[in-house]
Simulated assay, not measured.
Amino acid sequence: MSQMTNLLKSFQITDGGASESRLQGVRLFKSTQPMARRPVVYDPGICIVAQGHKIGYQGGQAFQYDANHYLVISVTMPFECETFASPEEPLLGLYIDIDMSQLHDLIGRLGLQPEIGNGSEKGLPRGIGPAVLDENMEGAITRLLTCLQSETESQILGPGLVREILYRALCGTQAPILYSLAMHSGTFSQVAHALKVMQSDYAAKLDVEQLASKARMSTSAFHRAFKEITSDSPMQYLKKVRLSKAKDFIVQENMKTYIAADKVGYESSSQFSREFKRYFGQSPAEMIRELRTG
């Protein structure tokens, strides 16, 4: 059993969810039950699994993140995820939000080449992907988990250790997507701007032409680049964002289905219910019923 696992076991973590740590932007998660493949949305961050493993599915590809591979997410990303855990060996890990000011500063100090985020013969980097968890990264994470056991150490040492983890990620194989996230120019950055619009204005009547205009790209170039980065078309992505937001309203805020549908931009409740069930495999009512009995 790794030191990371032992340290995570010492925290009080909500089973089946995430718990805030003593340091803002760092959350600890635990699950004692396996979870079938289902839609999820991850915000930009670094996901580290110390025990158990997850398999992500996106655009016809699968990727595993586990004790040997952490996951880097550069843009808010809907994808499907399967969790492998048991009461004897629960899934344990932590999620670290990406601080943009830290990312900019580190990239400036590292002097990374601009070409890394502009796309090349290999195309644009995907917005999500696993990287090998090497000894240096493991050491930084272990030190962070150790300091999180103390309020004083969390506030004094924690920010520096989070910065080191971000630096280690910039030295890893997913550096291109982190660099692309921080860029103010280039195709990835233009698409990332449109993604932020979709995250904040998801209830608005958005179309591909509007989004391409906000990204300052032609419609065809925008559509092609968007799919390369997210594996979805712009309208597929927007639908997933709307349905995920509605699920949060229904499950976490106990909002009535028709109100949630309207709040995320659906004009037809019946269309919303159909698409919700197709995406999540359950109707809103079935999901609420399962949560109450579970």
Rank of each mutant, 00 (worst) to 15 (best):
S268W: 02
A203I: 00
V26N: 11
F280G: 06
Y57P: 00
P34V: 04
I229Y: 07
A131F: 05
I165P: 06
F188Y: 15
D207I: 07
S180P: 07
D201C: 10
H53F: 15
D262T: 12
E286Y: 04
Q199K: 13
T146L: 05
A85I: 09
G127V: 00
E82F: 12
R38I: 03
R143Y: 08
D207H: 03
A261P: 12
H69N: 13
Q155F: 14
T152N: 10
M4F: 05
G108S: 10
K263S: 11
G186N: 05
R163K: 15
E121Y: 13
Q282T: 04
F276N: 04
G93T: 07
S200E: 08
H53M: 12
T76S: 14
K196F: 11
N68P: 00
D232I: 01
I250D: 14
I48L: 05
I55K: 05
R168H: 10
Y65G: 02
D134L: 06
G127T: 00
A204V: 00
N136P: 04
C81T: 08
A62K: 06
Q252N: 15
A18N: 00
A194G: 09
I128E: 02
Q271N: 10
E89G: 12
F11T: 01
R289A: 10
V49A: 07
E164K: 13
L112G: 09
K239W: 10
H193Q: 11
Q3I: 04
C81N: 12
A215Q: 00
P234S: 11
L291Q: 11
K227S: 02
L23R: 12
F11W: 03
L106V: 09
L206D: 04
G186P: 07
S120Q: 10
Y95R: 03
Y65D: 04
V41P: 08
R37C: 12
M217Y: 00
K227L: 01
P125T: 02
A62C: 06
V26I: 11
R292V: 04
